[in-house]
Each structure stands twice: as C-alpha cells, then as structure tokens.
C-alpha cells in the first residue's frame, strides 16, 4: 500500500482542551476512506490540521513522503490537497462559472495573470464548464452563488475542490443538509472520481458511509478508537452499540 497522506502523532490543544490526541492516520493512495465518530470527536479539526487552517501543537503531516506540517494553506492546495467545508464557503456574488474558472486558473498557474481576461483563456473556461457539467451545475453556471438552491451550492462546494485536481480530497460532510433524494447523487459523483484520487470522507449518514468507504476510521474524543475495513467496522459490537445504535435511532 502506498500512502498518500499521513499524520504522525498529531496533537492539537485549544487551551486545556485536547481536540486531537496523538492521531496516526494513513490515507492510502486511491483510498475510499471514511472518518466517522460522534459530534465533537475532532473530525473537522483533523481536516483543518491536514489542510493547514490550524497548525498542530505537536506532530507531523506528511504528503507522499514530504513533510508539509509547516506549509501554508494555499501552498498545500498546490501540492494536491483539496477540501470541502461542512458549512458552505462560497463567493456569494460570483457565479459558479467565475468561481470555478478562478479555481482552475489557480491550479493552471494563471490566477496571477493581470492582462488576459477569462474571455481570452478558453481552455480554462472549458475545463470549468466541464466540471460544472459533471456536477449538474451547467444550467445555473451564470447565476449568483448565493441565489442557488442549497443542493446546488453543495455541489458547487465540491466543484471548487475538484477544480484543483487534487491528489487527496478531504470531504467534510458533503451531503449535510442535502435532501434525502439528492444525497446519493453527490456521493455517486465522488465515487466516480478517478481511482488515483485519494478520498477521506467525513459523514454521519451510515448508509452513505458503508456504500462508499472501503476503509473506516472511528474517531472518539480526538483519538483513533478503531480502524478497519467497512465490513469489520460494521461488525464491531462497540461501534454498533455506541455509534450506529445512536444514528439508527436518529
């Protein structure tokens, strides 16, 4: 197994609160890996550490053998880590086309260009259009992002992450708040991504987790509590009692 992204003894303290407790997590290349755990277990904190929003109190983060613990947020995207946010983080006044074109231009090293507008960069715009098409956003691509229906905004959130052609994609509850019927649509798109993209998914909906993930890590109180294949986790008595029991009852 080749490892795409891994953490070594990662610790994050907020004052006296231990949000991440010696986490050693390995996301294999091409993984379909899910991270589950009760609310407040530190899942989002872990994503924030991996993407550089937070810097860890202790420990290291390694991407394809290179230590990236000290690399700033934006540069990590360039190295191949992309994410979506649990709560939509969009550019309200921009259209999906503008936003995704910008993200594509950034990846292509063209976002600092001052002289040529997007009108003169057809290859960038085409790629953005393809991404939007793939996420069923083509019809809405020139509307303001803040006027899109919630499901479309969720899809745009994913489009922005995909535009950077990530090696590792961190999805923080991509289907949160999306109506039941549309949830699988989003996960199907994620599942259909090329196999060389490694995906770490945070999700509460166990149906989605089990239909998507091959490997599952359970995070409890900031530490990895259990790790294994989807079948092992599903069969684990403790997980069933503590976690699945809860979520099955609602």
């Amino acid at each position: 197994m080749t490892v795409a992204l891994e953490t070594h003894d990662l610790v994050m303290r907020f004052g006296g609160f231990l949000a991440t407790n010696r986490v050693n997590l390995q996301v294999a290349r091409g993984a379909r890996h899910a991270l589950i755990g009760p609310n407040g277990a530190g899942k989002t904190t872990l994503v924030n550490l991996m993407t550089g929003v937070l810097s860890p109190t202790e420990g290291r983060i390694v991407l394809e053998g290179h230590d990236i613990t000290a690399v700033p947020i934006a540069a990590r995207v360039g190295l191949g880590i992309a994410r979506t946010f649990q709560i939509n983080q969009l550019f309200p006044s921009m259209s999906p086309l503008e936003a995704v074109s910008l993200a594509v231009a950034q990846r292509a090293g063209r976002s600092a260009g001052i002289w040529r507008g997007f009108g003169a960069l057809p290859e960038i715009v085409d790629e953005a259009a393809d991404i939007l098409e793939g996420l069923h956003l083509a019809d809405a691509m020139t509307e303001r992002s803040d006027r899109l229906p919630y499901g479309k905004q969720r899809a745009l959130e994913l489009a922005l992450a995909l535009a950077s052609r990530p090696k590792v994609l961190l999805l923080d509850e991509p289907a949160a708040g999306v109506p039941e019927g549309e949830r699988h649509e989003i996960l199907d798109i994620v599942a259909s991504l090329p196999r060389d993209v490694s995906i770490l998914l945070i999700e509460h909906d166990m149906d989605l987790v089990f239909s998507f993930a091959e490997k599952i890590s359970v995070l409890v109180q900031g530490a990895v509590f259990l790790e294994g294949s989807a079948r092992e986790i599903a069969a684990d008595r403790r997980v069933r009692e503590v976690y699945l029991g809860e979520s099955a009852d609602g």
């Binding site: 009108g119 922005l160 535009a163």
Partner: peptide, 24 residues
C-alpha cells in the same frame, strides 16, 4: 476583469475559501 482581479474579489468575499482553492 483578469483572473487576478477575480482572485481579489474572491479573497474579499471569503478569504478562507480563497485560501482553500489555493490562492496565496
């Protein structure tokens, strides 16, 4: 009207997201 200008608007509207798509 350039990508540069669009990236400025991006960081004005949502600096966290601008960083998350890789804009320095």
């Amino acid at each position: 009207n350039s990508p540069f200008g669009t990236s400025l608007r991006a960081l004005k509207e949502n600096r966290m997201r601008a960083g998350a798509i890789g804009i320095p």
